[in-house]
């Protein structure tokens, strides 16, 4: 039997890769994909916990996370389309309307 720690470690590594990708990439599309990566890594750890604790709640949560991820991808990509129509820019350092 594979130890539960290994799953949590794998999930943490993929989550961190998602975080780093979100921070260092300039392209908004890749940043959205990094968010999906983070959500998936959390799903892995939830399913692993659900299996090892013999409780189905983790898998129910994964179900809801997948729902929210689908909604998030749809809204995020719609924002990207609107942004591209108005400014023709997909790089974060070119978008400075809000003077942040």
């Amino acid at each position: 039997m594979v130890p539960l720690d290994w799953y949590i470690g794998l999930s943490a590594v993929i989550f961190v890769i998602g975080v780093v990708g979100f921070i260092i990439r300039r392209n908004i599309l890749i940043m959205l994909m990094s968010v999906e990566l983070m959500l998936n890594s959390v799903n892995i750890s939830l399913v692993a916990f659900s299996h090892y604790l013999q409780d189905l709640r983790g898998q129910i949560f994964v179900f809801f996370i997948i729902t929210v991820a689908a909604a998030e991808a749809a809204i995020g990509l719609a924002i990207l389309v609107a942004l591209f129509k108005n400014k023709a820019a997909v790089h974060t350092d070119e978008i400075t309307e809000m003077k942040g």
Binding site: G9, A12, V16, V19, V20, I23, I24, R25, T92, D93
Partner: peptide, 20 residues
Amino acid sequence: RFIGEWPIGVALGISIIMLV
């Protein structure tokens, strides 16, 4: 591809890994 300050992002990632 990357923002100019990418080593800071990588350092942040490594610190999160240590924390976990």
